[in-house]
């Protein structure tokens, strides 16, 4: 079983609350979303493994068994072209769970009229394999969901 940690601090909510059908309908995969605190912060690796993709606004970490977790920092944030985001690691790096990967400011995302909600998604996973936290609030590094 893989323990997936909260990459940011905030309110844990159902993926269906994400204002993007691709995430809300779990088309990318099952998971949990976090409404982040609106202050500048770091987003950390949710699992240990390899950073296979590191964009300013999103990253994927794949564990040694090949399970990939996508963290998307806000919705449609690719449009910001990296403005307000700073990468703290590099693609291909092996990281421990909890390693800071991107520094960003959710309030700045919201100020541009975009949602700062953070979907955390188990890629290619079956929905039944995910056991989400029952906590309403999670701190960075807390358990967010288990991936069986």
């Amino acid at each position: 079983m893989l323990l997936v940690l909260a990459p940011v601090t905030g309110a844990a909510v159902d993926l269906s609350e994400v204002p993007d059908p691709v995430f809300a309908q779990s088309m990318v995969g099952p998971g949990v979303a976090i409404r982040p605190l609106g202050e500048a912060q770091e987003a950390v690796a949710p699992v240990h493994g390899t950073v296979v993709k590191l964009h300013a606004h999103a990253f994927v970490v794949v564990d040694p068994e090949g399970r990939g977790v996508l963290v998307h920092l806000g919705i449609d944030t690719v449009k910001l072209g990296g403005d307000g985001f700073a990468k703290l690691a590099a693609e291909g790096e092996h990281v421990a769970a909890g390693t800071p990967l991107v520094r960003w400011d959710p309030a700045r995302v919201e100020a541009k009229g975009l949602s700062s909600i953070v979907p955390v998604v188990a890629l290619d996973a079956d929905g039944a394999a995910i056991s989400p936290t029952t906590a309403a609030e999670v701190a960075q590094g807390d358990r967010l969901f288990d991936w069986a």
Partner: peptide, 10 residues
């Protein structure tokens, strides 16, 4: 058929 593989292609 793999979202991870397709995203990984970048």
């Amino acid at each position: 058929k793999s979202i991870l593989a397709v995203m990984g292609l970048d």
